[in-house]
């Protein structure tokens, strides 16, 4: 079952066309990977899904992105509400310079959750879901900036999960981390797909192969091929995909 459908999506930064007629679907409760060489448009594509590109000036978008059957670039749509449904984790861990607790409680507080007990519960649940609870339960009130890089990234995941989103977008979440921290995050992603739909941009084909169910291969702003991950890596239809996954360029 699909949760996001993208039809004929074009995106321009000024005169530069960063995405060309992209058509794809994101399957619910699966991990979809976006791969391709640097500058191919995979991160840009990810950011169109929760309208983070709105922050950049001179961006023009044509085409359709449907989330749960609703056009997200519709003028009447509340972006704020949309982003609560579609959470995001960034390349570089970016916890706020606040305590661990306040980082996770930030989103719920903005939604008007004031009751201390509710907040405590949400914080604990989210940290447990992000497999961080055991490591930070004794230092909830210490600054989040004191955590290690991997812990910070899981905290950012917990922060996104606290909003109970439907979809979690991850923009190369492990590229700034060491192999052990990367492993933990990958395990976590596999756990999370039971409850969430995950779209992950990754530089590493191995990572895509390890954790994703579907893979979208981008090249020069085009979506070359989208299929089950096994198929993309063992039996791609397009020659360019084969060249990329076999390491002939990229």
């Amino acid at each position: 079952m699909s949760i996001i459908e993208v039809k004929d999506l074009d995106l321009f930064y000024g005169d530069f066309q960063a995405l060309k007629k992209v058509n794809t679907v994101i399957e619910k409760n699966k991990v979809s990977a976006l791969i391709g060489p640097s500058g191919c448009g995979k991160s840009t594509f990810l950011r169109t899904l929760n309208r983070m590109n709105d922050l950049i000036r001179n961006v023009k978008i044509n085409g359709q992105v449907m989330f749960e059957g609703r056009e997200i670039y519709d003028e009447d749509l509340d972006v704020v509400a949309l982003r609560r449904k579609i959470g995001m984790v960034f390349q570089k861990p970016n916890p706020f310079p606040k305590s661990v607790y306040e980082n996770v409680a930030y989103g719920p507080r903005r939604c008007g959750v004031k009751n201390k007990r509710d907040l405590d519960r949400i914080v604990e649940e989210s940290l447990k879901e992000a497999a961080l609870w055991e490591e930070v339960k004794d230092r909830l009130n210490k600054s989040a900036l004191g955590l290690s890089g991997g812990q910070q990234q899981r905290l950012c995941i917990a922060r996104a999960l606290a909003m109970k989103p439907e979809v979690l977008l991850m923009d190369e979440p492990t590229s700034a981390l060491d192999p052990i921290a990367t492993n933990k995050i990958e395990d976590l992603i596999t756990q999370l797909k039971k409850h969430y739909t995950i779209v992950i941009v990754t530089h590493s084909m191995h990572q895509a192969a390890r954790i994703s169910d579907y893979t979208n291969f981008f090249l020069m702003g085009e979506l070359v091929e989208k299929d089950g991950t096994d198929k993309i890596f063992t039996n791609p239809k397009d020659q360019r995909t084969e060249d990329y996954v076999t390491g002939r360029f990229g």
Partner: peptide, 24 residues
């Protein structure tokens, strides 16, 4: 504009998607 925006929020969050408890 407000009222329309609020209306969207309501319809979007009213949709049931299973997987989590009703209370949540």
């Amino acid at each position: 504009e407000f009222i329309e925006k609020i209306a969207f929020t309501k319809s979007a969050s009213g949709k049931e998607t299973g997987s989590r408890t009703a209370v949540e």
